[in-house]
Computed example of a mutant assay.
Amino acid sequence: MTILMSADWFYPCHIGGPSNTIYWQARALTRAGHSVFVIATAQGQQSSVPLDKWLTMDCGQVIYTRNPHFYLPFRHIWQGWRTMRKADVVHLNSLFYPSSLVLAVLARLLGKPVIWSPHGELSPPALDYSPRIKKAVLSLIWLLRKQVLFHATCPAEATYIRQQFGPCATVSEVRNMMDIPLPVDRKARPYLLFMGRIHPIKAIDKLIDALGQSALFRQSDYELIIAGPESDPVYAKQLREQIRRLNLHQKIVFSGLVTGAIKDQFYADALITILPSKSESFGNVVLESLAQGTPVIASTGTPWEVLEAEQAGSWVPNDATALQEEIDRYLSMSPEQYQHYRSQAATLARQRFDINANVDQWQFVYQAMAA
């Protein structure tokens, strides 16, 4: 089968979880014998990445398009139009990136089946940003809704899709998965970890408030490392002011973006990873942390209630008090109980979220659409 995937951000760019999710999915499909073509933009790529030429990679054929502006993706659309003629299925990976709507229309003109993944863009907190533009785009997608299979990563996202496109919208639910890395050698260090882009939807301010009211954290040797790109500089500035106001400037460190082996080591060495987001359709950082055996505190705005059931972490409201109480629990946990959580975390990642062991879920969706 020939599959065309469109992505605004794509590996080796590490801005946002979908850039890696799409890569892992494309690689697993390529390993399973399918022909995968990925049309991506040059956004976030290093200067060493060749642009505007097809590259043979372990995830199939990939082209990184150089466009006049990120939101004027003319070459992205052109390459998508040229390539989709030989595709059996077209998979779009953003509702609001301008090329997605154009490619959806072109695919339907060619009679190509379309799968469309919002990747969290339809959650109420996400829709609060640029609401008028998004409302206009959604009204146009509404016209195509009967000819599209929408992909949801969790039941909540399936609900959001049907709220926007009607109860009869066709939705296939396939959770995000990853190519589980080998665990690195852990060097336990006294820090808590937030990993992700610095943006208001991540609710990092709630986490800082929680640490500010934790006497146990203040009196301990532990610090918080905030690792990720400052995708919202205004919010990043507000966080630094909040840290100074709470007198936590010696306990909280901004490390910037970390990737690859360094990122895995950050996860492995941490006591816990904390994801206090207002909303997530999945939250790749949770899975990346579990893969290194590090338990996670995730907010109830994320679809990670399984952490509680499997004793691989915690699923709590993202208010400061709830976060503080759970953080204190891990800071005072016995070594035996903590090791149990680490073991459960690694087991959960490998048994349920390995894309190579579960690629048949995606093959079934694509084959059903092509048929």
Rank of each mutant, 00 (worst) to 15 (best):
A7Y: 06
D8Q: 11
W9R: 14
W9F: 13
F10A: 05
Y11S: 09
G16A: 00
S19R: 13
A26H: 08
R27G: 03
R31I: 04
A32F: 06
V38I: 15
A40D: 04
T41I: 07
S47T: 12
T56A: 13
Q61V: 05
Y64E: 12
F70W: 01
F74I: 15
R75E: 12
R75C: 05
Q79K: 13
T83H: 10
A87Y: 09
D88G: 14
V89D: 06
N93H: 14
P98M: 07
S99P: 06
V102F: 13
L103V: 12
V105M: 11
V105L: 14
L106G: 02
L109H: 10
L110G: 14
P124Q: 11
K135A: 15
A136V: 13
R145D: 08
K146S: 13
F150G: 08
T153E: 04
T153W: 08
Q164F: 03
F165C: 10
G166A: 05
C168M: 10
A169N: 03
E173D: 07
R175L: 04
D179S: 14
I180S: 01
P183H: 04
D185M: 09
R186K: 15
K187C: 04
A188T: 05
L192P: 01
G196W: 04
G196C: 11
I201M: 08
I201D: 05
A203Y: 00
D205T: 02
Q213L: 13
A215E: 14
R218C: 07
Y222Q: 03
I225E: 11
G228F: 02
E230Y: 03
E230P: 10
V234S: 10
E241I: 08
R245V: 07
L246K: 11
K251W: 10
L257N: 06
V258P: 00
Y267V: 02
D269K: 05
L275R: 00
S277K: 03
E280L: 07
S289H: 00
T294G: 03
P303R: 04
A312W: 00
P317V: 09
A322R: 11
A322V: 02
E325M: 13
M333W: 01
Y338P: 03
Q339T: 10
Q351C: 02
Q351I: 07
F353R: 09
A368E: 14
